[in-house]
Design a protein around this nucleic acid. Structure first.
Lengths: 229, 229
DNA sequence: ATGTAACATTGATATAAATCAACTATATTT
DNA sequence: AAATATAGTTGATTTATATCAATGTTACAT
């Protein structure tokens, strides 16, 4: 992780809710109160169990938000691209992160001490409302995930993951940002079965797969698989 | 469901955040803006998929919050006793409930139109902060649930459910508020395996079971089962 | 260019947990 | 009190999915 000057965060300008909040507040707070930091691919942005000291806002790159379970068995809840709050779900009640976030490509964040943010939102509703909205969105995603992981078979689960990636990129043709193992972790499937399922869907002509390049050929059918299990 | 007078909600006084919020606000709002309602055992308080029109606060009784999945296969996320927000997780972003809540014993709620609550928290931080805190608590619970359901075997899952019931009641000796099927739904286990596991734990002297009366005899060991799967 | 580590693939096997089926016990209604 | 519905129990069977093992492939570092 590189702080401030070393990896300048141009992307942040106009992309960062935290900076915006301070600008709008009219409060006299030195810009230096908001730390800009860069993370290389595979670097951890926050770690499950660590205490939450800063609000973190993703302004560049891509990251995965996941739960670290037993025996190094992770569950990826969702991927994140800017603009997105990272240290969000643990804001208000949890003292410790209930999940980890790791960069899956070089990423930039802005972060501000929680104390300062709290001072800010005590005099400014809008910040809190924005936090809340983002919060609600995350919860909706997580509920969907719980249903998926517990109610669908692995075929339905991988279909849902592929569809969610397509909507993440806004196109049915994309390059997987994750390994097979991680694609499995998005769907709570073993790496081996993930590979098998991709091959299966390919052989059925529903998707095309060349290495990490995936194209959803039959979106309607894939959606049906996702819905019906 | 019975509205207002028919099933008076004495329990509400001093237990209802919604009433408190309005009292504190100093706003001139007729008390009748907050509806009091009673629900009989098994009656639904809100239904997954329905649009969220009111904030609902549980002031009496007990309810289960659950996701309705495929083939009538539910997952109970947690049980609720007053004081607790019901229509919480879907407040800010979701237009529709992402879960259902049903009374598991006769219950009372207070509810207020979302519009009115929004007006209120736009001029009063405290309300929003309280909502947020409750929000955060729910999320922490849900994260724990996801880990449990996906990382533990059924023995570890039922152990966790029993322990959570004990902490819910604040005692290691309690009467199950739910059927075997529902206890299974709390742990994503089939009814049959739930029964088998209870018998197993009983035979091992870890718990005692007589009908719905459960006592956790060896809390330490049960906790170990819960942790290690 | 070569070696090493990370990633991907395929087949065989093991196993946890669901489902099916039949039956008993306990409530609730008439 | 009888009848019906709901809840609880047990055993046998099936099935979905993980795990194990072996091997191929690609990317990365020296």
């Amino acid at each position: 992780m590189r702080i401030n000057g070393k990896m300048p965060c141009e992307a942040c300008r106009n992309k960062c809710d935290l900076h915006d909040a301070f600008r709008r507040s009219g409060r006299i707070v030195p810009e230096s109160s908001i730390i800009r930091a860069g993370f290389r691919k595979h670097e951890m942005i926050c770690r499950q169990g660590d205490s939450v000291s800063h609000a973190i806002y993703l302004t560049g790159g891509t990251a995965k938000l996941y739960i670290e379970g037993i025996n190094g068995h992770n569950i990826i809840l969702y991927l994140m691209r800017p603009p997105a709050y990272i240290g969000l779900l643990s804001f208000f009640e949890s003292i410790h992160y209930t999940y980890s976030v790791t960069a899956i490509e070089d990423s930039q964040v802005c972060m501000v001490k929680l104390d300062l943010l709290k001072e800010l939102y005590l005099e400014n509703h809008e910040v809190l409302l924005r936090l809340n909205k983002a919060f609600g969105k995350s919860v909706a995603l997580i509920m969907k995930k719980i249903i998926c992981l517990n109610q669908k078979n692995i075929r339905g689960r991988i279909a849902e993951s592929l569809l969610s990636l397509a909507s993440f990129y806004g196109t049915d043709s994309f390059r997987l940002p994750v390994t097979r193992k991680e694609l499995g972790e998005m769907s709570a499937i073993s790496e081996e079965n993930t590979v098998r399922l991709l091959t299966e869907l390919k052989n059925e002509g529903i998707i095309s797969v060349h290495g990490r390049d995936v194209t959803i050929i039959d979106n309607v059918f894939l959606s049906k698989i996702s819905e019906l299990g």
